[in-house]
């Protein structure tokens, strides 16, 4: 299941997608993120699943644009959104790198 956490407001799209089928609950992203964006917990959208999965914390869901700002210095020169260059930069984000199963992706 693809869980899209975040929001879209007048200024753009700010979503972190977590593929819960890939996530094995290792919690490496929780340690890797300098802004405590991730937490481990029940799978919100599959109540019958027993193993914990990574989620974006309720605290940060409405502020991702700001929380991730220090990691995303590339946005100054690149436009954001899914251009080839931003996609390359997204690959280098600490959270994306930390997840060996490649369960984490960003929309901007």
């Amino acid at each position: 299941m693809l869980a899209n956490y975040g929001y879209k407001d007048g200024s753009g799209d700010y979503f972190i997608a977590i593929d819960t089928d890939k996530c094995n609950g290792c919690a490496k992203c929780v340690d890797a993120c300098p802004q405590s964006v991730f937490e481990m917990g029940d799978d919100d959208s599959d109540p019958l699943r027993e193993e914990p999965v990574a989620r974006v914390s309720g605290e940060q869901r409405k502020k991702l644009k700001y929380a991730c700002a220090p990691c995303k210095r590339y946005l100054t020169t690149l436009s954001g959104g899914k251009t080839e260059e931003t996609m390359k930069e997204i690959e280098k984000l600490p959270c994306v790198v930390s997840c060996e199963l490649r369960a984490i992706n960003h929309s901007w």
Partner: peptide, 15 residues
């Protein structure tokens, strides 16, 4: 009825 993909926008009043 199992969720495959979702998003929830509760930050912005637009929409």
């Amino acid at each position: 009825g199992k969720v495959e993909s979702f998003l929830m926008n509760d930050k912005c009043a637009a929409g």
